[in-house]
Design a protein around this nucleic acid. Structure first.
Lengths: 108, 108
DNA sequence: TTGCATCATAGCACTAAGGACCATATTTCT
DNA sequence: AGAAATATGGTCCTTAGTGCTATGATGCAA
């Protein structure tokens, strides 16, 4: 199972943030470095075209209805995203980016 | 560290979704059960008052600016959330719920 | 066949979230 | 002292997101 490997990478990322904070608390690194570190840790968020959004959902094997529930939006909105009638912004894009890069389970 | 325990719980949750899909593919469970399972897996999303939002951010040891970047929103919006001028909805609430229940690293 | 449910699309009206700008005052680090 | 980060406050404005309803296609079971 990807369980072991995925866990390793995931936890490394996860703990890195806290480790960096401890280093700063101990005076080992300055605030600027900590700040830059935090920003470099963020999952990149780029605009998604309708097909890309649908691809994320279909990879997750979900209907529009339960995909919408996972993102805490309405099904009609998901439909509009996938047809290009509306474009996801700010927080929605972040959720989609997480689902795309880390897998749907990252946001369940 | 927490790595092992957290990983165990996290991976169990993560794989459960895929396992259920396999069970369905194998004909072991029906579609309705699969659907209900997916919904029951979702991180509960409840309204958050301004102090709760600030608490999440301060637990993460982040300034409004980098917290905003993590959520892919503007700093002024985070400020408004924490002062009660605006209330986070849909996708924003989902992100905040993830940060609150699974830790800030879940959304980095 | 009939019936019932899920699925996806589509329309419309409406509210408020969220974005993009400002300016200000305080703190913190150099 | 200066520079940079921090948090608040504001104002204007766009549109994302909601809620509702209706449609047709699909699939499953009685």
């Amino acid at each position: 199972m990807g369980s072991v490997k995925k866990t390793y990478r995931s936890d490394a990322l996860r703990s890195a943030h806290l480790v960096a904070q401890d280093l700063h608390a101990a005076g080992a690194i300055d605030k600027a470095t900590l700040r830059r570190f935090d920003l470099s840790c963020l999952t990149p968020v780029e605009p998604l075209d309708p097909q890309a959004i649908r691809a994320i959902r279909e990879t997750a094997q979900m209907s529009q209805a339960i995909f919408a529930k996972a993102l805490n939006v309405t099904t009609s909105l998901v439909s509009k995203w996938e047809r290009g009638e509306k474009k996801p912004g700010g927080p929605s894009l972040k959720l989609l980016a997480l689902a795309s890069r880390k897998g749907i389970d990252a946001i369940l």
